[in-house]
Simulated scan of single mutants.
Amino acid sequence: MNSIIQCLNNTAILVTYFCNGQYLEHVNRSHSTRGAIAEELAAVVRALWSGQYRFIATRDLRLGYISECASEAGDYSHHSLARYALSRNDNWLLSRRWNCPNCKEKRDAVKKLDISRLPPVLVIHFKRFYVDPKEYMCNAYRKKQTYIDFPLEDLDMRQFSLHSPPNHSYNLYAVSNHYGSMEGGHYTAYCKSSVYGKWYKYDDHVVTEIPSSEVKSSAAYILFYTSCSARQT
């Protein structure tokens, strides 16, 4: 959770949203948590940007998050949901056929997604963890260590967009990394400061400056991009 919090804490437009109190206009007080998670996250962001602390503990946020998830998840465990998703995916692959409107014959279907509107902040989640289809009943999780070459600047999203948007270029500002396997691992974050314009490694309470050449690695798990046209103040 610390890794993701650091990535969120370096999302400039989100920091402004929490620090100036704008989030209060959108908190759902009728929810069972009465907006407690939003309040705790806002408190964490404000504390991190106050300059008063070298590091802080996110205990209240963690307990509030776990409490909400535990009350709403019911009996649906991660493993059971994964087995269900895999069984649905196996049924789809690709046995799925459809009637072609042109030739009127049954053809293999191809799933395709297009983005209709690009967001100011783009989050890309790599599918690092998976269950071997031959062993999914045994919860045999595996991790892909594949190195993925992703751009630090000028990520062009036009090829993934339904239309040709004028603002289609993105710059990387944060990476959540995972080291290890499903049996044991560790998360860190690489974030580019919007204040200093430098990259930093966040490893729990230890923060060190790193060169941009170290940002790309096979441990990259979640990428955070911001639109070049988005206001980052």
Rank of each mutant, 00 (worst) to 15 (best):
D154S: 15
A82I: 00
G185H: 01
S50T: 09
V15S: 05
A189L: 08
L93H: 05
F129L: 02
H205R: 15
L113Q: 06
T208G: 03
A189V: 08
L86N: 04
Y130M: 06
L63P: 04
D108S: 04
S77D: 02
R117S: 14
H79D: 03
V44M: 06
D156V: 06
I222A: 05
A219I: 08
A219D: 03
S217G: 05
K111S: 09
D114L: 13
S77G: 02
L113C: 11
R34T: 13
L86R: 06
K111Q: 14
L14E: 07
V123S: 08
L81K: 04
T11I: 12
S80F: 00
T33G: 02
G184R: 15
D154P: 02
S181C: 11
E209Q: 14
A73G: 00
L93G: 04
E135V: 00
Y136A: 07
N167I: 03
R88S: 08
P165W: 04
G184L: 13
Q52N: 14
Y53C: 07
S80H: 01
E153T: 11
R128Y: 10
V44E: 02
I210M: 08
C69E: 10
N10M: 05
S80T: 01
D204E: 13
H26C: 08
R158S: 13
S227C: 15
I124Q: 02
T226N: 12
G185P: 00
R59L: 07
S30K: 12
L61Y: 13
S87K: 07
T226H: 12
V27A: 03
W98Y: 08
I56K: 00
L155R: 04
M182Y: 11
I37L: 15
N99G: 01
